[in-house]
Write a protein that binds this DNA or RNA. Structure first.
Lengths: 336, 336
DNA sequence: CTGAAAGCGCTTACAG
DNA sequence: CTGAAAGCGCTTACAG
C-alpha cells in the first residue's frame, strides 16, 4: 500500500511529529535526522496526502475560477494566466463554467465552499449577486475579475471598461463616422454596460447622438442574427462597436452574408483582443484587455486577501489599449 | 463558526452516525427523523466538508485534466466538454497546462496524486510516458485522450487520426494537387504522427511521392515561420496539410505575408475544427474532431475505469469528419 | 532537538 | 432503526 507518515516515522525510528516537521520545514530538527528522513521519504516514494493535511491545516491549495465559459477564448486565456500564477504559489485551479446563469453560479459557489477551496475568483456575470451567498456567508475569500457588483464589497481587478468604450468611440469618430451602432452583451453584465457608457458619452461629447434603435443587446450565440438586424435597418450604421470579439465576429459574418464589405461598407470594432482578433477577415480592430496581467494581478490580489482577510478591499484598474487592425476605416472609403 | 456534523447531531439529539446516514442516504432512518434532520441542516446552513469525507471515503470527486495549453481553443473546448460531463456525475476538474513539457507533466502528475483526485485525463503529449509514473505507480485511475502511448496500458479515447490525415490527402488529390506539403506538430505527439502517416500513405497510394523537404515539424509559436520556409522552397507545394488549426492559421498568415492568395496560389487544410476555423480568411477547410463527444466519452470511460479498475483497458476510436470551407480549391484555379 | 496526544470532520463496520 | 467507537493521515500546541 501507499506509505503514510506512520510508515516513514517507523522506518526512521522517529515520531510522526518529527516527520511532519521535516515535510513542512518547521521546528528544529538536527541536520542528520532531517536528511535521513528525506532519504527515506524519497526511497519509499512518499508524498504527503494533501487531503489529510488540509483537514488539519485548513489549507487545500485549491482555487475556484468562475467564468461564463472556458471554451470562450477570452476566458481560456484568462484561465491560463490564472493557472500559471496560481501554480507559482502552489495553488491548483478548478474550472467552473457558469454560462452567466445564476443557478449554476450558486451551485458552483456551494460546491467550492464544500471543497474548502482557499479562495475563489469570480469572472462571471450573474443577475443577482446573492448567487454568491454560499461563498460570502461562509467567509470564503473571494475576488472579482472584470466584473463588479457595487453591493458586494470584495477586492476587484477590472480593466477600465469605460475608457475602452471611449477609445473605440474616439477612434471611429476620428475616422469620420457619425452613425454608430452598438452590439452589447446582456444588460446584467457590468463590464458591458460600462463599455457602452464610455462609448456613448464620448460620442455625445463629440456631438453625436446614439440612436437607441442602433443599440442592441445580444448573447454570444445570437451575435450574427442581432448584427444582421442592425445592418438591415433602413439607415444602417457606418460603424459598429461590439462589446466582445465574438460578437464582432458575428457582425463580420453577418456583414459578409449580406454582401457588405468590411471596412468599406461598415467598420467593426471589437473588445478583448483574443487570438480570434488576429485571424479574422479582415483582422479585427479591437480594444485589447491585458489578459495575462489581469490573471496575474487577480491571483496576487486573492492571495493577499487570503493572507489578511481583514483589510479593506482593494480595487485595481488596468488600462485597455486600442489595437487597430483592418476592420475599421473611414466610412465608405475606397482604400481596398 | 460554520456548523459541523456534531452541531447538527446535537441540535437534533441524535448521533453523528445518524446525521451521516441521512446526508448519504444510507442506512434505514425513520422518515420523521430524516426530515427533521434535513430541516435542521438547511436551517443551520450546513454543508458537509468534502475534505473530511474524502479522508475517510477515499473519494474527492475531483478529476485532473492535463492538456498542452488551456488557452489553445481546441483544448479549451475539450475542457468545457469534460467539465460539463464531469459535473453531471458530481466531479470537478483541475486544469493542468503542460506545454507538452515532461517536467510539467511530472509535476502535475505528482500533485494530482497528492491531491488524491479520483482520476486523471491525459490529453497532453510528452517525450517519455515515464513522466506519468507518479500516477501509475500509485494506481490513480488514468485515461488518455487523443494521445496514445502503446507502452502504457490505460483506457484511451482517440479520433482516428490516420483516417483524418487520409481524408485530407484524398480531398487535395481529388482537387488535383500533386505537390503536397505538410506542417506537422512535434514528433513526440502520436496523434500528429498518425495524421501524417494517413496523409502520406493515401498520397502514395495515389502515386504521389511526398518530398521529405516539404514535411516540416513545428511548434505552435513557429507555425508562421515554418510555413514560410515551405512556401519559399523553389518548388513550393500547391497545398499544405497542417496538423492543427493553429498551424493552418500560421500558414494562412505566412501565405498572405508573401503575397500569395489562398486558395488560388496554395490550398491549406487544417485539423481540429475549432472556433478559429470558421473565422479565418478564407474560412478553413479542416478535419473536424468531434470535440464534445470526445470530452463526454473520455469522462464516461474514466468513471467506468474508476468503478472497475481491474478490467482490461478499453480503446474507443471516434471518427473525424472533413469540413470543407474555402481554403482549399483546385491548384492555380481562378475561381475567385 | 523530539515525542505523546489531541483534534480536524467526516464514514463505516459493528453491536444492539 | 440508532449509536459508540475506531479510524482516515495529517498538524499543532505543549511538555520536556
Amino acid at each position: 500500500m501507499k506509505p503514510t507518515i506512520y510508515d516513514i516515522a517507523k522506518e526512521a525510528g522517529v515520531s510522526i511529529a518529527t516527520v511532519s516537521h521535516v515535510i513542512n520545514g518547521k521546528g528544529k530538527i538536527s541536520k542528520e535526522r532531517r536528511e535521513e528522513i528525506r532519504r527515506i521519504m524519497a526511497r519509499m516514494g512518499y508524498k504527503p496526502s494533501m487531503i489529510a493535511s488540509a483537514l488539519t491545516s485548513k489549507k487545500t491549495y485549491a482555487l475556484g475560477l468562475l467564468v461564463p465559459d472556458i471554451s470562450n477564448p477570452f476566458f481560456a486565456e484568462i484561465a491560463r494566466a490564472v493557472e500559471d500564477e496560481g501554480q507559482r504559489y502552489g495553488y491548483s485551479v478548478f474550472i467552473c463554467s457558469t454560462d452567466n446563469n445564476d443557478e449554476k453560479v450558486e451551485r458552483y459557489a456551494a460546491l467550492l465552499q464544500q471543497k474548502k477551496v482557499d479562495g475563489v475568483i469570480i469572472g462571471t456575470g450573474m443577475k443577482e449577486p446573492s448567487a454568491l451567498e454560499p461563498l460570502l456567508r461562509n467567509g470564503v475569500p473571494t475576488v472579482f475579475l472584470a466584473r463588479e457588483f457595487p453591493s458586494v464589497r470584495v477586492p476587484t481587478v477590472v480593466v477600465n471598461d469605460y475608457a475602452g468604450g471611449a477609445a473605440a468611440a474616439q477612434h471611429l469618430i476620428e475616422l469620420g463616422h457619425r452613425r454608430l451602432g452598438v452590439l452589447a452583451e446582456q444588460d446584467s453584465i457590468s463590464s458591458s454596460r460600462e463599455r457602452v457608457r464610455g462609448f456613448r458619452q464620448t460620442a455625445e461629447a463629440a456631438g453625436i447622438w446614439l440612436d437607441p434603435a442602433l443599440i442592441i443587446s445580444s448573447g454570444i450565440k445570437e451575435g450574427k442574427v442581432k448584427a444582421l438586424e442592425l445592418l438591415q435597418r433602413e439607415n444602417r450604421p457606418t460603424a459598429i462597436f461590439c462589446c466582445n470579439d465574438l460578437l464582432a465576429i458575428g457582425a463580420l459574418q453577418a456583414a459578409k452574408g449580406t454582401g457588405l464589405s468590411i471596412p468599406y461598407d461598415c467598420s467593426i470594432v471589437g473588445f478583448d483582443d483574443t487570438v480570434l482578433a488576429s485571424v479574422t477577415d479582415p483582422p479585427l480592430t479591437t480594444v485589447a484587455q491585458p489578459i495575462e496581467q489581469m490573471g496575474q494581478t487577480v491571483v496576487q490580489l486573492l492571495l493577499r486577501h487570503i493572507g489578511q482577510p481583514g483589510e479593506p478591499p482593494e480595487r485595481i484598474v488596468l488600462p485597455p489599449v486600442l489595437s487597430i487592425r483592418q476592420s475599421s476605416s473611414e466610412p465608405a472609403c475606397d482604400k481596398r
